[in-house]
Design a protein around this nucleic acid. Structure first.
Lengths: 187, 187
DNA sequence: TGTACATCAGTGAACGCGCGTTCACTGATGTAC
DNA sequence: TGTACATCAGTGAACGCGCGTTCACTGATGTAC
């Protein structure tokens, strides 16, 4: 039956949140429309009242995750000890906790091998996510009173994403921890 | 109809090669048994004469790609100018050509976000692939007459994989090139 | 403020498609004598 | 070396399943008067 506009907006938000977690936990092909709807407490049929198709949901879900992720990073940087903002967010990124909780973690790390096979919209959202992360890194450095060039921010981001994705891909926990540690010690 | 043992072995090899390229080009979920068989010039039915199931094929395909990749790296290191083995393979890894030809490139970069959602066998193969790459990096350094610690090899590998996967994920070619360049300049 | 009606969020079943897997069959290969 | 038979690599159709999407329907919400 029909719901109020506020209810409908809330439903939409719940679906995006559910999809954003499923997307990061299982990857693009691991999210089904029915799953996302069920996780949000709905039946599959209503999906198309809110989104054009599955791609539109995934694109918006990625974007939402990317925003959340950068906001969380900024908060961590603000809460960090004086002059340690960048170091704090880098260390937080490179934890086994982050490795083990992809659903609430960095969407770049979660979707990096999905994007090449995805459509235009998703890849555009991914690119925006990269830029947001680079800006977040630069911002943290500025907060520490030092200048980090764009190339250095890029190299840092690449090593962060590489370390976490490799740590998730291996079945050897000790190796995973060493990979994270090795990159943490690099910066 | 029945084929000779030599023919059958050749068929099996063709299927693994086809699957290994499809796997790297399209990711785990992008490979269908029928596609792999068709690419190898066969109909789908014969597949189960050679492999227990799709997982067994993908595991073997990953392993094969991983071996090929390391062998290619070793050859490049051997052909490199004196004292430049490591630099040569790192630079070769970080090219737009490698980014654009995933089918014949590093399987770690191609499958890194697939592995976490894959079964035990695939993750074990992935771990073996990481170790092989780390050994390959160390070996190249030794050839240059310098010692590279395990942590440094790990940090290098993470940044390589991160750079290429991010470069493939974005739809912005200039950004992709800058990411590769930024990591190349780090080492 | 009340009333009548149009709208539309959400339901749950159905459809079509692709995919992994199975299966009966074919006929060349390999083996036993 | 030759022959008869068992084996089995490969074929191509079929099955079952999950998934994205559609659709007729329901009944509360929003709107027009």
């Amino acid at each position: 039956m029909r719901r109020s506009r506020a209810d409908a907006a809330e439903t939409r938000r719940k679906v995006v949140r559910a999809a954003s977690e499923l997307l990061r936990a299982r990857g693009r092909d691991g999210v089904s429309v029915a799953d996302a709807m069920a996780t949000a407490g709905m039946t599959p049929g209503g999906f198309y009242k809110h989104f054009a198709d599955k791609d539109a949901l995934l694109e918006e879900s990625f974007d939402s995750a990317s925003n959340d992720s950068v906001v969380r990073g900024r908060r961590a940087a603000e809460a960090a000890p004086r002059g340690r903002a960048l170091r704090t967010i880098v260390r937080a990124y490179l934890t086994m906790a982050h490795r083990d909780d992809a659903a609430h973690g960095c969407p770049l790390a979660a979707c990096v091998s999905d994007a090449p096979h995805a459509g235009k919209g998703f890849r555009r959202a991914f690119t925006a996510g990269i830029l947001r992360m680079l800006d977040g890194i630069t911002e943290a450095a500025v907060r520490d009173g030092r200048h980090l060039g764009r190339p250095q921010a890029m190299a840092l981001l690449a090593s962060l994403v590489g370390a976490v994705t490799l740590a998730r891909a291996t079945d050897d926990d000790a190796l995973a921890a060493q990979l994270l540690e090795a990159v943490a010690d690099l910066w």
